[in-house]
């Protein structure tokens, strides 16, 4: 009786000017576990909480390296993210092959934006049920972009998407003015602390459920060189967690986190 008549396909507007299928896709992003991204003048950091479907299974991959200078973190349907990240890998490779140039970050983000938009305008298609944080470095420095199922892409200074990401966003907003001048290590710390904020009461960051990736503007013999995409996963995040996040039992509060930043 009160059935919504305007959500059968992603090409029909409701009388209020909404496209329900796109909004439902955005719900899928909110179901995904949280990912955080932030940039300084020299680095971009992506952090993510991984989930396992069951105790016996492995953890779902949350951060994908696209190229030496480019990586994405995903929240939502991982299989849709694979389609998008494979497309980004193709474009990235094509740019390297025909021009010998790493693809500019904005360019590849606009490409997936256009792809996502087209599914809101063609009958029989469905929107991607995934949100991405795209981090990368190009001639203009480090960048972070948010991609959402509507095809909207925005450049961000810091961003968090996924379940309970509001807590992480609050953390990022509170520390926003510090990020620009952060060192690599400080930025990683903020990335992990923002991630930690959004965790449920009984959860904590462990080597099993935490992923982190860094890309930076580096230099070699006075020349500008990209500090390649580096993913910290599994045992590798251990030292980072130890250095930056207090583990269970010590009951640290927000005050601690804020002190160590300055």
């Amino acid at each position: 009786m009160f059935r919504n008549n305007y959500d059968n396909d992603s090409v029909t507007f409701s009388p209020q000017g909404r496209i329900f299928q796109v909004e439902y896709a955005q719900e899928a992003v909110k179901q995904g576990s949280v990912v955080v991204g932030l940039v300084s003048k020299t680095h971009v950091v992506l952090t993510a909480v991984k989930r396992n479907a069951e105790e016996l299974s492995s953890y779902q991959k949350k951060i994908v390296g696209v190229d030496d200078h480019l990586g994405v973190a995903l929240a939502g349907l991982a299989s849709d993210a694979r389609v998008l990240s494979n497309f980004m890998k193709q474009q990235s490779l094509a740019s390297k092959l025909s021009y010998g140039r790493p693809i500019p970050v904005e360019r590849v983000v606009n490409m997936i934006g256009d792809r996502a938009q087209s599914s809101t305008q063609h009958y029989g298609k469905r929107p991607y049920g995934v949100g991405l944080l795209v981090g990368g470095v190009d001639d203009l420095g480090p960048h972070l972009f948010e991609f959402s199922p509507s095809g909207l892409t925005q450049e961000m200074l810091a961003c968090a998407i996924g379940a309970r990401s509001q807590m992480a966003r609050t953390y990022l907003e509170r520390h926003l003015d510090k990020f620009a001048d952060c060192s690599r290590e400080e930025l990683i710390k903020h990335g992990l602390l923002a991630l930690k904020e959004s965790l449920a009461q009984d959860k904590e960051l462990t080597v099993d459920n935490t992923s982190l990736a860094v890309i930076g503007v580096g230099s070699k013999e006075g020349k500008r060189r990209v500090e390649n995409f580096k993913m910290y996963d599994g045992q590798e995040v251990g030292p980072l967690l130890e250095a930056n996040v207090e583990t269970s039992g010590t009951g640290e509060g927000e005050g601690d986190a804020m002190e160590t930043d300055s």
């Binding site: 092959l97 021009y99 500019p104 904005e106």
Partner: peptide, 20 residues
């Protein structure tokens, strides 16, 4: 058209492209 600032193709990039 695709770049929000000026494009970033340098001489080496053009040479690679032209040779292909």
């Amino acid at each position: 058209y695709l770049s929000s600032s000026e494009h970033s193709l340098n001489a080496r990039n053009l040479h690679t492209y032209l040779s292909k």
